[in-house]
Design a protein around this nucleic acid. Structure first.
Length: 553
RNA sequence: GCGCUCGUAGCUCAGUUGGAUAGAGCAUCGGACUUCUAAUCCGAGGGUCGUCCGUUCGAAUCGGACCGAGCGCGCCA
């Protein structure tokens, strides 16, 4: 019996008692899974909620409700009033058994729900500037964004993953100047390195590659033109490197969206004009301003600078307008905490465009502090001193890295200690979960070698599964769709890792207590089915988390 | 100064949107491999939920004040 069925029955009972109890309005039926096993499978605080309307104690209300509920519920073993008014439901163990064949039949599709109702949704994340390698923070957003997208898909949203390329503006020019300067330097020319230039060693590498390929050819070229050429080459190279690193992390984007195209197609100007027509724009001090303060921002913001150049804000509005025009009904942006001050104005801009309030959702993720041992790893754009995401990925490994990142709530800042991540690798939670999967594969292989065939569903007597360890495991499997719903609605993939731990733990306990392949043929078949179902869910959870499900370890 | 996020066991974190005696993992200590993988399991110790008020049947959770940490407050991106 599932939550919704139980809730329906309770609601019916309350409605029948409406006049007798003198209820004005009906409270929502809240069912929760109690933390304590002793409190049953489901629990409701309904009596507490009703006590404000009824002149009875919660205890009395609960007792009354229970006397009616008992008649309506046949899948329930026991209903009790406890803790001063909680109503606890203990389901019959048999009622869980039909889920097992369902899981087997659905396979990887088990857990799919439809709260998304196919709405076209975009998750935009990482969006690292294409002027250098990614850092550890990008890794966090890659892991979180990709898993969130996976979960939303599972929950029935139609999802696209998008990477926004900031390939327009002054930073690209500085980038090009930096490469150009290093190019000259490598070829023995005397140059002064541009102020604010990018100091990183990777700039040398890019310059070196140009030298290797084309030699001194560009020394004669006019500096402006040369920078133009280098900009394109270097940019493509960096972007390709970003793409490859993300791919190594198992993150594949559907769309790589270039900021330049917005400018080229006149979308930025078009957007400013559109806002003008909406009456949200005015001129002051030679600049063009958007009245964001009318839509909840602290002050108005500039769209077009005094010098005629649009601001980043203007092109970002155009970008989001473009998202809207591409038919997305919901857009989720994942930004680092250093951009949180930007949220208000962006939300205000969406209002100025007259989009609904829930069109744009911004997830602000707190920063990652990189440590090696106890010491913080200093990183500076200015000096170019930095440890890249790729280096960390190679050192720590994809599975551990993704699991570590996705398992933390994005609201909290996070210390990532490279030494710890490697040293503790044996005790890393990811291996605990993966090990459960590997153990399952081992059992299934063992059974196969013994010539025990995967039984057909009708052959299995599931009611043989009645030990506590077996039932606890089954109940956990039954929870899976609820977990997907919770993760999707709260946009919180980290909750899935908690489920993964719980499920793995219950499997390990089951494994210790219940011999699967035994002399008892019927029991063996029933347990094999349970093991197979566990494997199905575990594998799917790991897939959603972007972590591999090894067959042996 | 203002705004956002965080503060729970020695460490890393949960705590189902206000519920029952605040829970896991790591670390520490003590147990369990002749059997499908011991990267596992079982047990023990460990807490002023940053502090103080308030809201109510009931607060780690909501509100206010304060303390502490991080981030932000550009005609930068």
């Amino acid at each position: 019996m599932i939550k919704s069925e139980l809730a329906r029955v309770i609601l019916k009972v309350v409605e029948n008692l409406r006049d007798e109890l003198g209820l004005r309005d009906l409270p929502p039926i809240i069912l929760e899974r109690p933390k304590e096993k002793a409190h049953g499978d489901w629990s409701t605080n309904l009596a507490f909620l009703l006590s404000s309307q009824v002149k009875l104690t919660p205890q009395e209300i609960a007792t009354k409700l229970v006397s009616y509920l008992r008649k309506e519920l046949n899948q329930v073993d026991k209903i009790e009033v406890a803790g001063g008014g909680f109503i606890n439901f203990f389901l019959k163990p048999v009622s869980f058994l039909p889920f097992l064949p369902q899981i087997i039949k659905k396979g990887g599709r088990y857990g799919e729900i439809n709260i998304g109702q196919g709405i076209k949704t975009q998750v935009e994340f990482v969006s690292a500037n294409p002027v250098g390698p990614m850092h550890i923070g990008h890794g966090r957003w890659a892991a979180v964004g990709d898993s969130l997208a996976n979960i939303l898909e599972k929950a029935g949203f139609r999802v696209e993953r998008e990477f926004y390329i900031n390939d327009y503006g002054s930073q690209m020019d500085i980038f090009a100047k930096s490469v150009s300067a290093r190019y000259s330097e490598i070829l023995g020319e005397k140059v002064t390195f541009p102020e604010n230039g990018y100091q990183g060693a990777y700039i040398y590498e890019i310059a070196q590659e140009i030298v290797d390929k084309d030699g001194k050819k560009f020394l004669q070229v006019d500096p402006i033109k040369r920078e133009q050429i280098f900009k394109e080459r270097a940019y493509k190279q960096v972007l390709e490197h970003i793409r490859k690193t993300l791919e190594k992390m198992g993150v594949i984007f559907d769309v790589w969206f270039s900021e330049r195209t917005l400018h080229k197609k006149g979308k930025v100007k078009e957007t400013v004009n559109y806002l003008k027509a909406n009456g949200c724009v005015y001129e002051k001090d030679g600049a063009v301003w958007l009245r964001t303060s009318q839509f909840g921002d602290d002050k108005d913001r500039v769209l077009i600078r005094e010098n005629g150049e649009p601001t980043y804000f203007a092109s970002d509005i155009a970008y989001h307008k473009d998202k809207y025009e591409r038919g997305f009904q919901k857009v989720i942006d994942i930004w680092g905490a250093d951009h949180h001050g930007y949220v208000k104005r962006m939300k205000a801009a969406m209002k100025a465009l007259r989009y609904s309030d829930d069109f744009l959702e911004v997830i602000i993720g707190q920063m990652v502090n990189l440590l090696r041992g106890k010491d913080p790893v200093r990183m500076s754009k200015r000096t170019g001193e930095m440890v890249t995401l790729e280096e960390i990925l190679d050192e720590v490994g994809k599975d551990a890295l993704r699991y570590f990142f996705v398992s933390k709530n994005t609201d909290s800042a996070l210390d990532f200690d490279i030494e710890l991540a490697k040293k503790e690798s044996q005790e890393n939670p990811v291996y605990y979960v993966q090990y459960a999967h590997a153990r399952i594969c081992s059992i299934l292989k063992f059974a196969e070698e013994r010539g025990i065939k995967q039984p057909s569903l009708s052959q299995v007597n599931l009611s043989l599964l009645r030990k506590g360890e077996e039932l606890d495991l089954i109940k956990k499997l039954v929870e899976f769709p609820e977990i997907i719903e919770e993760c999707a609605l709260s946009r919180a993939p980290y909750k899935l890792t908690i489920y993964a731990q719980d499920l793995a733990a219950l499997f390990h306990i089951f494994y210790t207590q219940c011999r699967v392949v035994s002399e008892d043929e019927c029991l063996t078949k029933a347990r094999l089915l349970l093991v197979k179902a566990t494997q199905t869910v575990l594998k799917e959870v790991l897939r959603l988390l972007g972590v591999s499900a090894p067959e042996k370890m």
